[in-house]
Amino acid sequence: MRKIFFFIFFSFLLSTLLYARETKVYGRVYIPAVKKKERTFRGRMYRNRLSSRRSGKKASGLRRSVLEDVIILAYPLSFKPKVRPLKRVSLLQKNARFVPRVLPVTPGTSVAFINLDRFYHNVFSISPGARFDIGRRPTGVVVTKTISITGEVRLFCDIHSQMNATILSVNTPYFTRANKNGVYLLKNLPPGKYRMEAYHPDLGTVSEVITVTENSAERLDFNLNR
């Protein structure tokens, strides 16, 4: 009984100390009134009628916020971080769209492409240094590709011209995604100087330099409306 008491006490003490050392950068992302970038209109008239608009409605992004496509990155300027490939990363094709539309990874990460629709999908990229085409794949088939370059890898589906996604390969282990309201939180950043970036595939990047100190919570808002 005594041992259990000490175990709980020290666990509590340790977590309190760790929490006290935690650094946070948080804030909000503002973007302009969103223009649809997906070229759905040509496909609507020329598409195969086997698909109803019911699936297209989900695909048109009405239930998703474009703010979720914003990735917040922290590049350390005062030290060199150890960047390891991520594990178990997947990009889904569901309701004729890529989920997520922006996927942040680190170089060397293997991304599994999974078709969850009842029809064929293809994934191809013609980005320099990352050209690949995995061909048509039926439901459930998983194909893995390793992203070795740094930067944007633009993905498309040869069968559904409105589908597009971006793999953002970055040389930092510190990144997060904004939520549907545009709010983000980056935790456990080692103290130091950082170049903070907000990235959106259609709106570009804005950056700012901040210094993170121990036990601090920095607020940094980004405005992609420029």
Binding site: R49, L50, S51
Partner: peptide, 13 residues
């Protein structure tokens, strides 16, 4: 007139 009778299965125009 378009009618998707069975999505990804059967349609009529």
């Amino acid at each position: 007139f378009n009618w998707v009778i069975i999505p990804e299965g059967l349609d009529l125009a």
